[in-house]
């Protein structure tokens, strides 16, 4: 894994970790949005979502091998490859997520809530095992295609890659917001989240709306997969498990079911993650050993003291 903890001290150190935290946060937020979109509409915690994200990292690894990519790219080659990877990553995860909904969850829509939840856990295992069969159990390096250039602002190194990731994530979030707020499908999604039966009686095709939630959530996870490969550069079949849980924590922390909460929660958890690694370094084993406990401690505390999250959930108006 990367060296997360910086060596110099003071405010420079703080901002350096903050820069890293925002980058991680952008990725967590993209994945958290997928949890929250699906939960907001069908109240299902899609435990396979982390693995849908992981599959984008795996397929992008396979594509980069097929293209024979080894080293850093520049100029139009870099732009072309990034666009291609983004399109492939988003398409793979969107397709997977939609297929899972169609094959596994749709049949269980009227079943007791535990049934689709367990189905999601089952799908998660299936996706992980197929990935393991495909690329083995090791950590495989993703080629470092992105230049390592960084801006130096008062000693804080801001990598171009991290700027790219932040810009990409914010751009996608803005597009999502516009989609939800200004299009008929966005309105249909909000209406369905609140009262699926009333929405259906107003002419909203509920199956199509649920399909859209999975499609968009999957696509965002796919974009996060590309970011993950560029930053972490290690592909493994089990990546989605922990990454998914952290993103899920972010969604709960922000208020599951609330898209703005997922974004806020994602960035908050990313920043807490990066700062914890540094500032809990005095603990035995170093900050890295404790960071998961801290993040999941936040999950537990949120669920105990503020289950609706920091921004609160849009409480469905059910009768």
């Amino acid at each position: 894994m990367l060296e997360f903890a910086a060596t110099n001290g003071g405010p420079v150190l703080f901002f350096q970790q903050l820069e890293l935290g925002i980058t991680l946060g952008a990725m967590y937020a993209l994945v958290a949005l997928g949890y929250t979109l699906v939960y907001g509409i069908i109240e299902l915690i899609n435990f396979a979502h982390g693995d849908v994200f992981m599959w984008s990292t795996v397929v992008l690894l396979l594509v980069s091998n097929a293209l024979g990519l080894k080293g850093t790219l520049g100029g139009f080659a870099l732009i072309g490859v990034l666009i291609l990877f983004l399109a492939i990553g988003m398409a793979v995860s969107a397709f997977l997520n939609v297929s899972i909904e169609r094959l596994a969850y749709r049949r269980l829509r009227k079943a007791p809530r535990l049934a689709p939840l367990i189905a999601a856990v089952g799908v998660s295992f299936i996706l992980e095992n197929i990935a393991q069969l495909t690329i083995g159990s090791g950590f495989i390096a993703f080629p470092p295609i992105f230049p390592t250039t960084a801006l130096n602002i008062f000693g804080v190194k801001i990598s171009i890659l991290h700027i790219f990731i932040f810009g990409l994530a914010v751009g996608l979030m803005y597009a999502l917001d516009r989609f939800i707020q200004t299009t008929k499908l966005g309105r249909a999604m909000r209406a369905t989240a609140q009262d699926p039966e009333a929405a259906a009686l107003m002419g909203v095709n509920v199956n199509r709306t649920i399909f859209m939630a999975f499609l968009i959530g999957g696509a965002l996870a796919g974009a996060a997969g590309l970011c993950y490969n560029l930053v972490i550069a290690q592909v493994n079949f089990f990546t989605g498990f922990k990454f998914g849980l952290i993103a899920f924590t972010a969604a709960v922390f922000g208020g599951i079911g609330n898209v703005y909460g997922a974004v806020a929660g994602g960035f908050a958890i990313g920043i807490i993650y990066a700062l914890s690694i540094q500032y809990f370094n005095f603990l035995p084993g170093g900050g890295v050993a404790w960071v998961d406990a801290i993040v999941f401690g936040i999950l537990v505390l949120t669920l105990v003291f503020r289950p609706s999250g920091i921004l609160g959930q849009q409480v469905p108006d059910k009768v």
């Binding site: 309105r187 909000r190 609140q194 009686l201 002419g203």
Partner: peptide, 30 residues
């Protein structure tokens, strides 16, 4: 239900079921 609506039957509810976190305009747009 959505297809029945498309054929031309709409309804209201005894216990009003508006989409309460949406505006009046958005409700009608739905």
């Amino acid at each position: 239900p959505d297809r029945v609506l498309r054929r031309g039957i709409a309804r209201t509810f005894q216990n009003i079921r508006l989409f309460s976190n949406m505006t009046v305009m958005e409700n009608i747009l739905v």
